[in-house]
Design a protein around this nucleic acid. Structure first.
Lengths: 211, 211, 211, 211
DNA sequence: AATGAATGAGAGTTCATTCAT
DNA sequence: TATGAATGAACTCTCATTCAT
């Protein structure tokens, strides 16, 4: 479909602003991973610093060497996840030899990502209350990626003319609920079943007016 | 599209199980309305019993005469809301003279409902963590409504053959994200703009393979 | 010396703003007394809510029904104490039959008060950091009481002409350090020894230029 | 008035007891200066080791090479300050050609010192809780300086007979509150206004019974 | 001599829930 | 039926101090 531009994450530092030693980097990483897991499992509010630090096997105070607050780790995780989703889709769609295949692979990458990281998906969905504005930012940046590709495809006559933003949000919505129904509700990691993907994809192709 | 079957809500009782007096019914209603407002505004966790009872102008203890716990009011609200959404869509689609119009009106009703009760929409989206299982139940009951109608339409040759569950979830996803983008993010109640609705609807019609 | 105007304290309420029941009033009183004792003994920072509530024999949470924060109880105590000091001095000086005697009795009242409530004295002295501005307010209101009396006395030719504010602060300083040396450092409640009071008083009388 | 005896400070060592290298001495000095500044600005409790070491531009651990604890630096600072106040007053009063002038200059020196180091003054006033006993020691050593001079003056018939300790504490109290009112409350360094000094000084002279 | 990552106890505060009245 | 005072566990966050490097 399109090549998303995915900028690099800023290098991690301590709260004090100092750069991190190898050891510090490892500890920060452990905390971030633990936070991801706990947030995904319990949700923002039921996740507690105690649980996160216990899971990371460090003392409570250690958390605050690397993160300003619970809120801030959450925001960082959402940003991170946003980058990873877009990167996955970008990577996926670049493998296609023509636009149709690229589009298909981009979608498949999105589902594979959701399937591999169901927790991240759960994190995003709670962002609305946990971090005002984060959710909107997340969807909008992904939409922007789609919009570029859709505009191209229209210009090239590959799909019918339409408001690309409406299409982009429609596509994301489809992906979101199909992912929720056939990945998350299955419990544990898994894949969207082949036939579900094909049916959904056919629906989208027809909807977009592809020949 | 289809006529959703919407069963009645069970009659309200006190926690003790006793039926309610007129006065008790009124108090319970006030609490439920207050809870809806506070949950929608602040989210499950930041909504507190104090805030709810203050808004309802009763004492804290009164809350526990009518509801078992914070959790339970929330669940009741989600159920309630689910019934109201389905009722609105059912009502809407019954007004149509043919299936195509019914379908269109059902969709419009959904958006009108979202636009008129943006807070409810926010309640649903947080249900995932606040009340495990509630979200799944919510989507599934709505999907079931769609599925019946879609099956009919396929049998009648009005739309292309496809797995109706996949289609149902795709349709809900589209509605959800379009509603979020063009109603919720606009702040305050409002309507999905005419042209957005038309573009989206055209996409869906094509996708479904309607002639 | 002069009659201080001492306004009444506002009636105590819960944090919510609601008036207190008899029981609530009692609990609030117990907490306030406990806070006074703990602050006096340990200082603002080493006093903790746990210690205060333990001393008052209530649960930690109960504290926050009656007080907004640790800071706020402290401020209330300082205000309270300020009122009580001024009231004691006002009462004392009103007993005198002529100005000289009134002045003497006012001073004596101040020392008696300090002697009876050594803890309060310790509370005031730490207010500088615990509650910015509180200390200044405290001294200034007491100074204002002195200033009125001194002005009268100058007009009546009973003491030499001088800047009454300078005199007021000088008098307070004398009272403060004499009180500290001969009451607080003695440990436990007690009285400024007779001869110390007389020597100090003679010094002040000469300083003021009383005949 | 009198010549205070001001003994030298003990030479600084590391916590381990070892004497310091030139570099070590410099680091220790930097920490001590930073501590003085931070304690003065924030008070004992809000001053943290992190802030002190940041201000001194050394690592946190470095602090504990030179000082046993937060408490101990504070004590050292109070001692230090005590020595400096007494030295300033001693220096000042030695410049006078007769006792009256010496006394006057000693006082003036005290105010100048306060005016130039308002922060130190703030440090002393919080010593009561931060370091039990330190405050008493501070006042007593200054009082001792006064007492010697006052005794002399009485013997020489220059001032009226009285308990010199009472007079000493009265004088310190006057200095303290005048300094607080006209230096500290003005914010930033400054001087006691000329006329305030004169009025206060006249009060003291009369009080002491100087001819 | 100096570093700075790590600790862990303890701080103030919130809030769902209970219960005597 | 309604009250609201009381509870206490759990929360996020701070900071003096230690110690391996």
């Amino acid at each position: 479909m399109s090549t998303w531009h995915v900028d690099d994450a800023p290098p991690p530092t301590a709260v004090s602003g100092k750069p991190l030693s190898k050891k510090g980097e490892r500890t920060r990483r452990r905390l971030l991973d633990a936070a991801e897991e706990i947030f995904a499992e319990l949700g923002y509010h039921d996740a507690s610093i105690v649980k996160i630090t216990e899971s990371a096997q460090v003392a409570q105070g250690t958390f605050y060497i690397y993160f300003e607050s619970k809120q801030q780790v959450f925001d960082e995780l959402v940003d991170d996840l946003n980058r990873r989703v877009r990167f996955a889709m970008s990577e996926g769609s670049q493998r296609g030899t023509d636009r149709a295949e690229a589009e298909r692979l981009g979608f498949a990458a999105f589902f594979r990502f959701t399937a591999e990281h169901p927790g991240l998906y759960r994190i995003i969905r709670q962002a609305e209350f946990a971090s005002p504005g984060a959710l909107q930012r997340h969807y909008q940046t992904i939409a922007d990626g789609y919009i570029g590709g859709l505009r191209q495809a229209m210009a090239d006559g590959e799909i019918a003319e339409a408001d690309p933003e409406v299409l982009a949000f429609a596509l994301m919505g489809i992906g979101e609920l199909i992912g929720m129904r056939w990945v998350l509700w299955q419990g544990g990691p898994g894949e969207v079943p082949e036939h579900v993907f094909e049916e959904m994809y056919a629906f989208i192709r027809r909807g977009l007016g592809s020949p």
